[in-house]
Amino acid sequence: MSGKYETRLAELGVVLPAAPAPAANYVPYVIVGDLVFISGQVAQDETGRICGKLGDDFTVEQGQAAAKTCAINLIAQLKSACDGDLDRLKRVVKLGGFVNSTPDFKEHPAVVNGASDFIGEVFGDIGAHARAAVGSSSLPLGVAVEIDGIFQIS
């Protein structure tokens, strides 16, 4: 029997991927006390990396979709950190969003809303979180968005 958050994901039509492996010399998450610090998750889905630059070849809506894939990957890492039980989540503490953008692009918060809104859809009130949304001239592997997170678990 799946828990309430697995059920909610199913209602949203989302199947979590396996937690992505790190792309370099780091671990996917670190648990300190009741906090899980999840490394940045790049925009990647079952078809591959989602690459592009906001303000150039990517619209805000495409950026939001890329940010949502980052959130899905964050949840996959969280599930791994919780030994497969997402219902151990007590609170989404903070998300950090990085947007690959041109120097004149100013809608970074709107792009990162793709992740924040999805986290709220899945986790409800405990999904309300602090956040940063910043622009970058490039991101690893050319992806459009990267998002990291801090979560409180039981």
Rank of each mutant, 00 (worst) to 15 (best):
R88D: 12
F123W: 01
T102W: 14
D57E: 07
F58W: 06
C51N: 15
K94Q: 14
G84M: 04
G124V: 00
I31M: 09
A110F: 07
G142A: 12
V27A: 13
R8V: 04
F118V: 10
V27M: 06
G48S: 11
E121A: 06
K90V: 11
D34M: 03
N25K: 10
N113E: 12
L16V: 02
A71G: 03
K79C: 04
V92A: 14
V134M: 12
L54M: 11
Y5E: 07
G96M: 08
L141H: 07
H108Q: 15
V93P: 01
D45I: 01
L74V: 00
V134I: 15
D56N: 13
P17R: 09
V27H: 08
A66D: 04
A24D: 15
V32G: 02
H108C: 10
T47I: 01
G13C: 10
Q41R: 09
S101N: 15
V92S: 09
A65I: 00
L12K: 04
S80E: 15
F58L: 13
R8H: 05
S136A: 15
L139D: 13
D83S: 08
L86G: 04
Y5K: 03
V92P: 00
R91W: 10
V92E: 05
G120W: 00
T47D: 12
T59A: 02
Q62R: 12
G120D: 02
P28E: 11
P20W: 05
V42T: 10
G3I: 06
C51M: 14
A19L: 01
I31E: 09
N113S: 10
Y29G: 00
P103S: 15
Y5I: 02
S80N: 14
D87L: 04
K68Q: 13
G97N: 06
S2Q: 11
G120V: 01
M1D: 05
V111M: 04
R91P: 01
G63E: 05
D125C: 03
K90N: 11
P28K: 05
F98H: 14
R88T: 04
I126S: 02
Q64G: 09
G97Y: 07
A130I: 06
A81V: 07
R131Y: 15
L86R: 01
K79T: 00
G55K: 06
V99M: 13
C70R: 02
V112D: 03
S137H: 13
E6V: 07
V42Q: 13
T7N: 09
V112F: 03
A19T: 01
V14C: 13
G96S: 14
K90A: 10
V15A: 12
I75E: 07
G13S: 11
P20L: 02
L89Y: 07
V36R: 03
G120M: 01
V145M: 09
Q44E: 15
Q44A: 09
F58H: 05
G3D: 13
Y5N: 02
T47Y: 11
D125K: 10
P140R: 13
A18Y: 01
G3L: 08
R8T: 13
G63V: 05
V27Q: 14
V122H: 07
G149W: 00
S137W: 09
R131W: 12
G149F: 01
Q44D: 04
T59Q: 00
